[in-house]
Structure formats: structure tokens, C-alpha cells
């Protein structure tokens, strides 16, 4: 199977001479895999996501070393808009990624960039709205939504682009439990149709169906293994390296 994402000796500093926020990361994610990235706050998850999506290139002071390929293409050699067709990302901070006046316009923006005819744009908008169950928000202004709703709209806007690889930075975190269930079900469905997904998540219960777990600590990837293997590793789990509610999980398994 072809690799969707490969990362080789990746390091990152937000400014030259500054601390290494990523300290030499290597991994591969094959096409169609669902990976959940986890780790304590400040360990570099969002930074890694920005690197994977290519968005980090906009930070002119930053120093990135190492190689990243998405679907076999080097991320450095693609134009920003071209990268967007390969990898879609929902940022942790939803405010920085919504810019339209209505939710519907926000979702239509990506397919409009793809030069689809209006009927096809309409189809995509409707199918994404139905998938995420946000018909009630259609005419709302994205700025006036709650944090969780903003994440839903940002996810919808990225899904309308239909990229093969999705990077999702804590999209579940601000949803209530019903919302978490709904979006987790959507992610499962996307996984089912062959999308490659890398999702940052603290709350492992809602994404226990992930193929593999990636555990970050202080800028390094300390563990990348099958979900059930890691969860069964009592010593690892008890070391307090992840935020995770043992009681709920033990109750389920």
C-alpha cells in the first residue's frame, strides 16, 4: 500500500536559534489509515499538524528541517493552494480559519476554488451539511457560533474540498458529548471511504476505533503503535503520559 504521509527527521524551531519544538520526528502513515495523535499540552502536536499541512511555511521566521511527503509529493515543492488539494486541515483555533459571512458561503468557498460548475458546488455543500447535521446553521454568521460549532463549520468547509488526507487538530474538544459522538461517527464514515486521517485528540474514548495511536512528548514521538496495544500496555498508560480517563475505558473493555 502506498504511504499517504511520510515524515523524515523533522525538526522545527519557531525562530532561528530558538528551542526545538519538534526534535527529529520520523513516521509513515499508509493511505486509508486513521491515526490519533495525543500527548500533553505544549508537546508540539499543533506544530506537527501545521508542518504536515504545509501551513507552517507562512511562518517566515520558523526553521523546518527534514522531509515531509504527502501522497508521494514533497510538501515543500507544492504551491500552497496545490497542497490544499492533497491535504486538508482543521486548525485548533477555529477563529483563524473562518472568513465568510454565512456558513453556507464558508462551505462553498473550497469547491468554488476547484472551478466546479454551480450545480456541483451546490451538491457538495448540501452533502457536507447533511453529513455533519448543520442545516440549522446554514445562514448563520460563522463568527457568532460557539467554539464547537465553529469547529464543525471548519470541518465542513474542509470536507467540501474533499482532500485525500485530513489533519484535524482537536476538533472534538469543544463539542458536548452528543456532538463528540456525531463527529466521531462522521470520522468513522470518512475512514470507511478510504480517507487518511490524522486527528489530535486528548479524549481517547471517543476515537477508540483509531487504527494507531501516536504519542508525543516534549517534541518527540515516543510511541506509535496499534491502539489496542498501547491501551493494553498498563505500565505505559499509568506513566501519566496521556490524558485519559481509565475508569471509563476499563468499564468499556
Amino acid at each position: 500500500m502506498m504511504e499517504a504521509v511520510t515524515v523524515q527527521s523533522l525538526t522545527y524551531q519557531y525562530r532561528p536559534g530558538g528551542p526545538f519544538v519538534l526534535k527529529g520526528i520520523d513516521f509513515q502513515v499508509p493511505q486509508g489509515e486513521f491515526v490519533v495523535m495525543t500527548g500533553l499540552s505544549g508537546c508540539g502536536k499543533s506544530t506537527l499538524c501545521f508542518c504536515l499541512s504545509g501551513a507552517i511555511h507562512h511562518n517566515r521566521d520558523g526553521v523546518m528541517a527534514g522531509e515531509i511527503t504527502v501522497n508521494g509529493k514533497n510538501i515543500r515543492e507544492m504551491r500552497p493552494a496545490g497542497r490544499a488539494l492533497e491535504v486538508g486541515m482543521v486548525f485548533q483555533n477555529p477563529d483563524t480559519q473562518l472568513f465568510s459571512q454565512t456558513v453556507e458561503d464558508e462551505i462553498a468557498f473550497a469547491p468554488e476554488n476547484l472551478c466546479l460548475p454551480p450545480e456541483r458546488i451546490r451538491e457538495r455543500v448540501e452533502s457536507v451539511i447533511a453529513l455533519l447535521g448543520i442545516a440549522a446553521l446554514r445562514e448563520a454568521s460563522p463568527y457568532q457560533l460557539s467554539g464547537g460549532e465553529k469547529h464543525l463549520v471548519a470541518l465542513a468547509a474542509v470536507l467540501a474540498l474533499d482532500p485525500p488526507v485530513l489533519i484535524l487538530d482537536e476538533v472534538l474538544s469543544q463539542l458536548d458529548s452528543a456532538g463528540k459522538k456525531k463527529v466521531a461517527a462522521v470520522l468513522r464514515k470518512l475512514h470507511g471511504i478510504g480517507k487518511t486521517i490524522i486527528a489530535v485528540e486528548h479524549n481517547l474514548e471517543s476515537v477508540a476505533f483509531a487504527d494507531r495511536l501516536m504519542v508525543m512528548e516534549n517534541g518527540s514521538l515516543i510511541r506509535f503503535d496499534r491502539t489496542e496495544t498501547i491501551l493494553a500496555d498498563r505500565d505505559f498508560m499509568d506513566a501519566g503520559r496521556l490524558l485519559y480517563d481509565h475508569k471509563i475505558f476499563n468499564g468499556v473493555s
Partner: peptide
């Protein structure tokens, strides 16, 4: 700048042309 990142992350300027829903 954030706006530019967000727009390009959704394929803005991927092609010399663009279509519109309305």
C-alpha cells in the same frame, strides 16, 4: 496573514479561474 493562510488552505488560487455558487 492568518486570513491568507486560511484561504489558501482551502485551495484559493489553485487555478487561474474560479466558479461561483451564485
Amino acid at each position: 496573514q492568518q486570513l491568507a493562510v486560511a484561504m489558501e488552505a482551502r485551495g484559493f488560487r489553485a487555478y487561474p479561474r474560479r466558479t461561483y455558487l451564485r
